[in-house]
Simulated assay, not measured.
Amino acid sequence: MGVSMQTAEMWVERWERQQRRYAVDREERFTVIADVVEHVCAGRPRPLLLDLGCGPGSLSARLARRLPDAEIVAVDMDPVLLELGRTHHPDAAHYVDTVIGADGWTDALGLRRPLDAAVSTTALHYLDEATLLGTYRALAALLRPGGALVNGDHFPPGTTPCAGLTAHVGRRRAERTGCHDHEDWRTWWAQASQEPELADLFAERARRRPPQGVSGAEDLSLDRHTDLLHRAGFGEVTPVWQFGDSRVLVAVRQ
């Protein structure tokens, strides 16, 4: 049995609320990412975009509204989130089930032309540093010259005092906006696992295992990400928006 639109809408809306706890000014971050993509794709008749770690289609849906002529491929490895996206945002993207950074993961995308932009938000930090470098290299190979990777995530500064300061500013901003009044990530997953319509998807989720050797790169500094991107084949790398250590980082393919 598939997931009904009503059920998908409820769980996606709850997902949107709980994610605000973890991405400072999340909606503004989405808007900035769309601004960059719009600029990079100016004059392209049917831009091709890749949404990495798409979850239930939050960023893809916003990009589809901003760039209605774009073709969007949205990638995730979680069967629950992918099905919620396919049901709630069916026209926003073509959803692909694959593990970012795994061997041959780009083959599953079915791309027939170079990408104009790759985007991500609060997703790539789960990759360890070596896998992240390999992913950056794969994306550089998929992007056209002048295409861009646009990544919204936590990029702390390299020095400990400044890292503590930016994290504090971000937390205070979240407190002022009431984001911590929403349920958290763990509560969302615990409650969603009790939804009868999602039972088969949760069973499939339980059968899967995370890639071996993945410890996450949450603590990689902005400078370290910049170095990895340069090594992967990107030319210019710059943050275009920041609040606390939440940033939108843009890397342009040479």
Rank of each mutant, 00 (worst) to 15 (best):
A167S: 13
A203I: 09
T187K: 10
T177E: 06
E175W: 12
P211V: 10
Q191F: 06
A174I: 14
E175N: 07
E236M: 10
T166F: 14
L228T: 08
T160I: 13
W189I: 06
V169M: 02
G213Q: 04
A217V: 02
A174Q: 14
L220V: 09
H225R: 12
W188E: 00
A192H: 05
A174D: 09
G164P: 00
S193V: 06
E175M: 13
H230E: 01
L220M: 09
R172M: 01
L220W: 05
G164C: 04
D219E: 09
T177S: 08
Q242R: 15
C179N: 07
A232Q: 01
R173F: 10
L165D: 00
Q194A: 11
G235S: 11
T166P: 02
A206N: 01
V169H: 00
W188I: 02
T187C: 01
C162K: 13
V237N: 02
R186T: 10
D223I: 10
C179T: 12
R231M: 05
P156Y: 09
W241N: 00
G178M: 07
G235Q: 04
D219Y: 09
W241L: 02
H180G: 00
T177Y: 04
T166R: 15
V214I: 09
A232L: 06
Q242A: 15
A167H: 14
Q242G: 08
R231E: 08
G235H: 07
P210L: 04
F202C: 07
F155C: 01
A199E: 14
D227L: 15
R205T: 02
C179Y: 12
D223Q: 11
W185H: 13
R208N: 05
D227T: 15
D200I: 10
G213P: 01
E175C: 07
G235Y: 05
P196C: 14
R208Q: 12
R209C: 01
V214E: 07
F155H: 05
G158E: 04
E204F: 12
T166A: 11
G235D: 07
R205V: 05
V237C: 05
W188L: 14
